[in-house]
Design a protein around this nucleic acid. Structure first.
Lengths: 344, 344
DNA sequence: GACGTTTTTGGGAACGTTTGCACAGATTTT
DNA sequence: AAAATCTGTGCAAACGTTCCCAAAAACGTC
């Protein structure tokens, strides 16, 4: 069972032209007379000619596709990023191949290598929370694969990066808790080696410092698996509660929802007495109970910017040596007033 | 900037063999001596040879990739289906290309045609809520593109299909509302032309009939855009409330969350007094307030089954003429007892 | 009308594979 | 000892493009 499509050869034969002429006419090259172009275009239209992208890729040694690695598409943050990526990519005639690492280093590496062997022209990647060793990426990069990092970026890798202003986002979220009267503010966060973890921790500390609240390391809990396992979260919550926090600042989408769930499950009676603010791009926050103050990242825009940078690298005639790290502002969406009311 | 990789030619030259021998050795053909095979394999390993899938695709006239069309990946139902698809596809050495229709017919058609021109070997599709005309799919199908439908399937298209037991799911959800004492049960549902809409409406009616509750058409609201626009939902809710429903059965993921949001926004004071049951695979339902009873579809499994069917079609030596429609059972997840309590 | 220019077209190699066929050498059969 | 059969290998075409290079046609100039 295979497709029947007409090729450039067919057109050439039918019109008594050479394949080169047809190819050029279709690509609207200057050398071809208007007359011939019209002829070819009309016939191509008639037989519904579609260029074979595979053949084109082989010849041009590029696939017009870019690979994306995210931890999971079910996460609203990432799905919004992907929408941003697609919006630019399709415009510029690239298509995208999405892969999920599920926060696993092994899976991430496997996927990247799979994509690379599929001849992607470039890679957009947010590192998994497990990832420490990015030598495999360096390898591909040095072989000529353009890479742009977003959200979770490595420090020691010279290329374009797109991140949210994590420091400020974290600062704002923490300050918000402080301003609403909280003084014992816990911090639940991702794996220690992620860039976002460090930056957000920094914002958290800075906000505490501004209001002269002592930073207590025991109030910070790291989740190695980014909240992929509920046990991980329940344990963190269980360890945190004896310290009697009156607020929690949570550092990622998955952790935020997971933490609220763990709270409700393990300690429903206190769940509503702890103020929560956290990074999340969930479009369902309005439905959550307890409600929370959320830090929203400009996900769509991050995807767009990252894609523009990547495509500029792909299409650069000479190796790019000047790299930028774009930092986009987050938005603090405050929780409604009626905390704890039944009408939430 | 382009990749440097070694090819079969390089290996052949280095080893003093012909490309055919190398090719055959790599594919472990019987004609090649063990000795030569070992030699080639060892060398290939050494130079980290990766077959160029583009060249292979061109030669074999297939791409080892399958296309997926869903309305949006941000929807947990679809992202779970995709996970199911990937689990099978990667096993069988296919890769998947995901496209989103965003419930738009135009976008859907565009994406399908884009995928088809990318030489996908097969297509897995859940129709958009706008889609009425599937002639473009018939066209591709008749040209030899294997297609398997899932979730939103057309009636008059002879191929494999995978759906949930929508009738029973709807019946159970409605019956649950009735058994908890509700008598004026509204039904908020998708575009009228979708298969799932009809089937779920059927289950809803059957449950009413079983308990001798009169079916009132005015209690049924259709959303043409599947809840992609919040205005659509707010209007539906506004029209519904004057009829004083004490329960609502909602027919899809997006609609369920959207409806609760619309309720909270337009009529927060009644939101908690209406019992809600609806189809949703959201993994955040436990956080919702008001809480709801949800009908969960076996999304992961649906993806797996659909992919197995598709791959069997792709790899069939002769045209497939016997088609099946797999129907998988849904699961009713009842809402917790303490409706309206502040501790939800 | 011979010559140089410009415009338009065609031939054919190349991209990296796979595979039908031919063929050399070793082995067996007659 | 010649013929037939096996084994293992190589040649070359093909998949559908793109593009370098050359050739043909059209035009202008003296």
């Amino acid at each position: 069972m295979r497709f029947e499509t007409s090729t450039i050869k067919d057109i050439a034969k039918a019109l008594g032209l050479s394949t080169s002429t047809v190819s050029r006419a279709l690509r609207d090259r200057y050398e071809i007379s208007e007359e011939t172009k019209k002829l070819v275009l009309a016939y191509a239209e008639k037989v519904n000619y579609r260029a074979n992208p595979i053949a084109r890729s082989l010849k041009e040694r590029r696939s017009y596709s870019i690979g994306i690695i995210v931890s999971e598409i079910a996460n609203n943050f990432f799905s919004q990023v992907i929408n941003g990526i697609e919006s630019i990519a399709y415009d510029k005639d690239y298509h995208v191949i999405i892969s999920q690492s599920h926060e696993s280093y092994k899976q991430e590496k496997l996927n990247v290598e799979h994509l690379a062997s599929r001849s992607i022209d470039g890679l957009l990647i947010a590192l998994s929370s497990e990832t420490q060793d990015i030598d495999y990426l360096r390898d591909l990069y040095s072989k000529g694969l353009p890479i742009v990092f977003f959200d979770r970026v490595p420090e020691d890798f010279e290329t374009h990066k797109v991140i949210a202003n994590n420091f400020k986002g974290a600062f704002d979220a923490t300050e918000h808790l402080i301003l609403s009267g909280k003084r014992t503010i816990a911090h639940l966060t991702n794996s220690e080696n992620l860039s976002i973890t460090k930056e957000r921790l920094g914002g958290y500390k800075a906000a505490l410092a501004k209001y002269h609240i002592e930073f207590k390391p025991e109030l910070v809990k790291y989740c190695q698996h980014g909240g992929m396992h509920s046990a991980e979260l329940e344990q963190a919550v269980t360890e945190l509660l004896p310290l009697k926090p009156d607020g929690i600042f949570i550092s990622s989408d998955r952790l935020t929802t997971g933490c609220i769930m763990a709270l409700k499950k393990t300690n429903p009676e206190v769940a509503h007495n702890i103020a929560i603010s956290g990074f999340t791009n969930s479009n369902l926050v309005e439905l959550f109970s307890p409600s929370l103050t959320s830090v929203k990242q400009p996900a769509f825009e991050m995807g767009q910017v990252a894609t523009e940078l990547l495509i500029s690298m792909i299409e650069a005639k000479r190796p790019v040596t000047e790299f930028e790290t774009k930092v986009l502002d987050t938005e603090l969406v405050k929780m409604p007033k009626q905390v704890g009311s039944k009408f939430l």
